[in-house]
Computed example of a mutant assay.
Amino acid sequence: MEFVNNWTGQTACALQAAFRMSNDAFAEHLGVAVRTVAAWHSKPGVTPRAEIQDALDTALSRASELVKARFARYVEPVDSPAVTGSEGAQALRVAVAVVVNDDDVLVVCRRGEDGAGISWQFPAGMVKPGVAPETVAVRETLGETGVHCAVKRTLGSRLHPVLMFSATTFYAST
């Protein structure tokens, strides 16, 4: 994908995700207000003004090949072969572990790519084809925290409405 005919909040959020930027960083990168980026997340069907679409076009055209590839993957229709898994491609899948020990819940601290800002998240990892998501949840928990755990049950799955990846969440205990 080299260009976008009509930018929407959803495609703008996909570009933000491809850049792996926070709302603040993406707003600064585009030269728009942070509230504009936040609005795209809350209203994915909104169409940005023409000058903002130009800024999005410029950001996409100047992006690295890796960012462009991620963006193309994020904006593929859900029923396309790359997302449905036909023709050998697989949908992007993530396994998330909610690990508890009595009343304690395990979270990990992640820093932003630019080294600024932190966020607290559950241990998680990408699920490669042929690997059970439960295995990924346990392995990532051990690798990220040093904590041994076992999956007790699946809490649920969801398809991210903007980024179009599937996440399965597991309840695990130490």
Rank of each mutant, 00 (worst) to 15 (best):
M1H: 13
F3P: 08
V4N: 01
N5R: 15
W7M: 07
T8A: 02
C13I: 15
Q16W: 04
A17K: 10
M21W: 06
M21L: 10
S22A: 04
N23T: 10
D24A: 13
A25Q: 11
A25W: 09
F26R: 02
F26N: 00
E28F: 10
H29R: 12
V32D: 07
V32T: 08
A33L: 10
A38K: 14
W40F: 13
S42D: 14
K43L: 13
K43Q: 15
P44E: 05
P44D: 02
P44F: 07
V46L: 12
V46D: 07
T47F: 10
P48N: 03
A50V: 13
E51L: 12
E51V: 11
I52N: 15
D54F: 15
A55F: 09
A55T: 07
A59N: 07
E65K: 07
E65H: 07
L66R: 14
A69M: 11
A69N: 10
R70T: 11
A72I: 07
Y74L: 08
D79I: 05
P81N: 06
T84H: 02
G85R: 07
S86W: 13
E87H: 15
E87W: 15
G88N: 09
Q90M: 13
A91Y: 05
L92D: 08
R93S: 03
R93K: 12
A95F: 03
V99K: 04
V100S: 12
D104F: 08
V105E: 15
V108P: 09
R111N: 13
G112N: 10
G112R: 09
D114H: 11
I118T: 12
W120F: 15
Q121R: 12
P123I: 02
P123C: 01
A124H: 13
V127E: 00
K128R: 10
P129W: 10
V131G: 03
A132E: 14
A132F: 06
P133W: 01
T135Q: 11
T135V: 06
V136A: 01
A137N: 03
V138D: 02
R139I: 03
E140N: 02
E140W: 02
T141Y: 01
L142I: 08
L142E: 11
L142R: 07
E144C: 01
T145E: 02
A150D: 14
L155P: 00
H160C: 00
V162S: 06
F165T: 00
F165Y: 07
A167F: 00
T168C: 01
Y171W: 11
A172H: 05
S173I: 03
S173V: 07
T174R: 06
T174H: 06
